[in-house]
Amino acid sequence: MERTVRIDHNVIVRLIPEGSSVLDLGCGDGSLLKKLKDEKGIQGKGIEISEIGVKQCISKGLTVLQGDIDEGLRDYPDKSFDYVVLNQTLQVVKKPDLVLSEMLRVGKRGIVGFPNFAYWKIRLYLLFEGRMPKTRFLPYEWYNTPNIHLCSVKDFEIYCAEHGISIERRIYISTERGGRILRGVMPNLFAENAIYVIRKNG
């Protein structure tokens, strides 16, 4: 998991231009924001629900607000950030649709990263084990998982098409062989993790 998360972060850092303004939703311990600040000189802010995460962000010198993104971002004006990042967070929020529409209102662009639930190993796990899938990315038991809104690459693309969201970039990641970016076919089967750059149409 460690290594893959770092690949996520590297991908996101590459996607964001120098000096952008960035809001990281569910920023956790702030490691992505810190990397963006150090490597891309971004103007960054984070929102994090846990007190532990907030404290870790403060110790990294980051600007962070303790809050619940499920309550929306209504106090942020439209297009107040160049990028709003939602990495490994979509699947844990109560209202993914609200969070996605709010992030694309507040940000000029959104970057969404999530584990692909249609990854072949997950499919096989369910098929042969007959149990809720567990992977490096989804290590929890069915009864204690924070992941309440898992989706597949296909689900996400259909959602975007149906909600007037255009996808500008798609990056698929596999943790196989030490972690790499997938280039090729059938991402819904082979991607373990997906990162999208999205924008609201119009």
Binding site: E51, V54, K55, C57, I58, S59, G61, L62, T63, V64, L65, Q66, G67
Partner: peptide, 29 residues
């Protein structure tokens, strides 16, 4: 530039005077 931290203390309003280190660390950093 605003940072906000909500500390999970049970000591009510007095918590800011009775800090058990949580507030301290945040302020120090």
């Amino acid at each position: 530039d605003v940072t906000y931290c909500e500390i999970d203390s049970k000591y009510g309003h007095d918590a800011f005077l009775l800090d058990e280190g949580e507030m301290s660390v945040v302020i120090k950093n």
